[in-house]
């Protein structure tokens, strides 16, 4: 009972600290507005993202089409909203997956140490010396493009930060008295690692995971922009921006790239502000 009170007051303190950070609150607001609009897309717009209307090709923004229409007469506003769903989904799931892998491997490496640690550290070094985009390109060429394969690829290539964080935390925490007591009680290694140590090592991971969401959304956009991300049938922010590869689009149809680009950048900005705010609250050691 008493423990619960302590945690809740810590929670309250952290929440207050977070909400005192103006940038973090602004970021949260931007993020939530865009997220809400994307989730509620069918309620906000009547147009379907892939509905082609040959009577209204490349219309500039107007009352009927808030963000205009593209070269196939599709409503850009609707495409941005539906595209956001896929882009955000890819970012969130990949980031969670990357953190999950990083936490699991980091816990193992940090707790056991020795040869297991050495091997895992080497593997993470190999992964991080490779430029991520090149690694992703090779993997895309192996398993092919698509939403699902992008998530897998991002997860597999994006676990090194959390791995390093959790590993360092575990190395310090495993020598703590409470861990040795747990060991003396004969608790299983798994319980000690994930029930006893992990909760005390977890907070920096939350901030890192948030910031990774932004990174993966950017990677998706980049990959789809060069045509190796999500196939063009599914709208994503990257696929919408892919239209801007033609000089005629850049010159004549500014709404096809400027508006989606701004929405994407605003969302990333929001996520980054929230991530920085979380890091200030949860991980004071980091700069």
């Amino acid at each position: 009972m008493e423990k619960k009170q302590i945690t809740s007051s810590l929670w309250k303190r952290n929440l207050r600290k977070f909400f005192n950070n103006k940038l973090a609150v602004l970021g949260l607001a931007i993020m939530l507005v865009i997220l809400f609009c994307c989730i509620a897309a069918p309620l906000i717009t009547d147009y379907l993202p892939n509905a082609i209307n040959l009577k209204e090709l490349t219309q500039a923004p107007q009352s009927g089409h808030l963000f205009g229409t593209d070269k196939q007469g599709r409503d850009v506003f609707s495409r941005v909203l539906y595209g956001g769903r896929t882009s955000i989904l890819i970012g969130v799931i990949s980031s969670l997956m990357g953190s999950f892998i990083g936490v699991a491997l980091g816990a193992i490496a940090g707790y056991f140490g020795g040869i297991i640690d050495a091997i895992l550290v080497r593997i993470s070094e190999i992964f991080s010396t490779f430029p991520q985009l090149i690694l992703i390109l090779v993997l895309v060429s192996i398993i092919g493009p698509g939403v699902f394969s992008l998530i897998v690829i991002f997860g597999v290539t994006g676990w090194m930060t959390t791995f390093r964080m959790i590993r360092t935390e575990f190395i310090t925490l495993r020598e703590e008295t409470y861990v040795q007591v747990a060991r003396a009680f004969g608790m299983s290694k798994r319980t000690i690692m994930f029930r006893e140590i992990l909760p005390n090592a977890f907070s920096p991971v939350i901030a890192a995971t948030t910031i990774n969401v932004a990174g993966f959304i950017l990677s998706e956009a980049g990959l789809s922009f060069i045509g190796l991300g999500v196939p063009s049938g599914t709208p994503t922010w990257g696929n919408i921006l892919n239209a801007a590869k033609g000089v005629d689009v850049i010159t004549n149809f500014w709404w096809l790239w400027l508006i989606p680009g701004i929405v994407l950048s605003l969302f990333i900005l929001g996520v980054n502000f929230v991530g920085d705010g979380l890091r200030d609250v949860l991980d004071p050691k980091q700069l």
Binding site: A214, L218, A221, G222, F225, L241, A244, V247, I250, T251, W254, W257, L258, G261, L264, S265, L266, I268, L269, N272
Partner: peptide
């Protein structure tokens, strides 16, 4: 620099 996709910045520069 951290929030804008590089290619988007590039397109703006081209424009």
């Amino acid at each position: 620099g951290t929030s804008m996709p590089q290619f988007f910045f590039g397109i703006i520069m081209i424009q």
